[in-house]
């Protein structure tokens, strides 16, 4: 459940942004959660729900989550296979099984809508 501490970090960033932009209400937060980031989307949503309840700034904020596709590069033929689903077992082009994930590791605060 490291999602809870990640949401705490997010709220800290939101407070800084709010004071920078002189606002007292955040309406919407858009996060990009890479499928390989080790972050469980449901746990992140739960953490956001629980922790925003105690804070007027974000009490009514909507959380939008974008899950990007991950590219898997074949180590034999360099073919790039993109998927939002499970890790492919083999390369669609040559059948080799050594695929290396590119991106999909990050957890990004993309956009904030505020009053």
């Amino acid at each position: 459940m490291h999602e809870m501490s990640l949401v705490q970090g997010l709220l800290q960033q939101l407070r800084e942004l709010a004071s920078e932009h002189n606002t007292s209400r955040i309406l919407k937060v858009t996060m990009v959660i890479g499928p390989l980031s080790g972050v469980v989307v449901d746990s992140f949503k739960f953490g956001f729900e629980v922790l925003t309840r105690q804070d007027e700034l974000v009490q009514d904020a909507e959380l939008e989550i974008v899950i990007p596709e991950v590219g898997y590069r074949c180590s034999a033929c360099q073919n790039l296979q993109k998927t939002a689903g499970e890790r492919p077992h083999q390369c669609a082009a040559c059948g080799d099984t050594l695929l290396i994930a590119e991106e999909g590791n990050d957890l990004i605060l993309q956009q904030v809508e505020m009053e």
Partner: peptide, 25 residues
Amino acid sequence: DHGHGHSQTHDDSVIVEINRSLFAA
């Protein structure tokens, strides 16, 4: 980085592009 892009929407709300990793710190 403080160079966020800003854009105005209806209802007087402001959308700020952040694109910062939560792992950055």
